[in-house]
């Protein structure tokens, strides 16, 4: 509060005007889109926008009757959860090695893992499509799971590595003199001590996986493997155009859990998003 008082009344007013305006820019489109979810179709795509619509539950009925929304939800949850599990199983040992061992090529291996994050999905889209086609995994949730895991593996590894670097070495040394093996140390000391990092990594990976669009679009060529993210883009009904009210509802079904997860890890968010580069 000290800084608030010192920056003076005039500044304070300007400051709050800017902050509140930007907050409105952030939140008003979301609230407006929420109202779209409860409007009848006829009041959405219109020559003149209707600001005070009649409310309706059309979109709910539509979702349940015309689209297998439960299937999309199941696909999303299965693919995302599976990919996060794969990531953690692969990343925790890798992060442990990168954070705690001296070995030849450590820097290069670490950077190689990081650099896979820089690859544009479109670059590998064509080959990945053929790869999954050849092994018969097109249109399958398993393929999505493998892809999401690959997309996020670099960031999960780097986040966990960053948290492991912060754990004081003395803890391990003490255990080691008591005769604990390396794997015991990983299991009994490192993992519990960097649990916030592991959770942060898992949450961020889950968000990116839920959002993934391009690969899902290519691999899920029929609605059998659609996730929420891609199912949205197919909510169009021929001459009726885009079915916005259904899109709005589905997007809020995904938004709610993400919001809750992010509130839980809010303190770790800036560190997680920079893969450990910022110790926020």
């Amino acid at each position: 509060m000290a800084s608030v008082r010192k920056s003076g009344g005039e500044n304070l007013l300007v400051r709050y005007i800017i902050l509140v305006s930007w907050a409105l820019v952030c939140v008003v489109p979301i609230l407006w889109f929420l109202t779209i979810g409860f409007r009848p179709r006829t009041e959405i795509i219109v020559p003149e926008p209707i600001y005070w619509p009649t409310w309706s539950l059309d979109a709910w009925r539509l979702l349940v009757s015309d689209w297998p929304i439960a299937l999309y939800l199941r696909n999303s949850i299965l693919a995302v959860a599976g990919s996060v599990v794969i990531d953690l199983v692969l990343a925790i040992p890798a992060a442990f090695a990168l954070a705690r061992y001296e070995f030849k090529g450590r820097e290069d291996i670490g950077f190689y893992i990081l650099s896979t994050r820089m690859m544009a999905p479109a670059i590998v889209a064509v080959p990945i499509f053929f790869l999954f086609k050849n092994i018969g995994l097109l249109d399958s949730v398993w393929a999505l799971m493998l892809i999401y895991a690959a997309i996020n593996l670099s960031l999960v590894t780097w986040i966990i590595r960053s948290y492991m670097l912060d754990i004081p070495k003395e803890l391990e040394d003490a255990a080691r003199t008591d005769g604990a093996s390396d794997l015991t140390i990983l299991r009994e000391i490192m993992i519990p001590a960097c649990l916030p990092g592991i959770i942060t990594a898992a949450v961020i990976a889950a968000i990116f996986a839920i959002n993934e669009f391009l690969f899902t679009l290519l691999i899920a060529s029929t609605s059998k493997a659609y996730t929420m993210s891609v199912a949205l883009a197919n909510f169009t009904g021929g001459s009726d155009g885009v079915i916005y009210n259904a899109i709005a509802l589905v997007s809020f079904i995904a938004f709610a859990p993400i919001l809750i997860l992010v509130i839980l890890i809010q303190k770790h968010l800036s560190r997680g998003l920079t893969m450990g580069a910022v110790k926020g």
Binding site: C26, V27, I30, I210, F213, L232, S251, F255
Partner: peptide
Amino acid sequence: FLMPMLFMPSA
């Protein structure tokens, strides 16, 4: 301030 980022990009 974070909310827009938490929305699915396709949405």
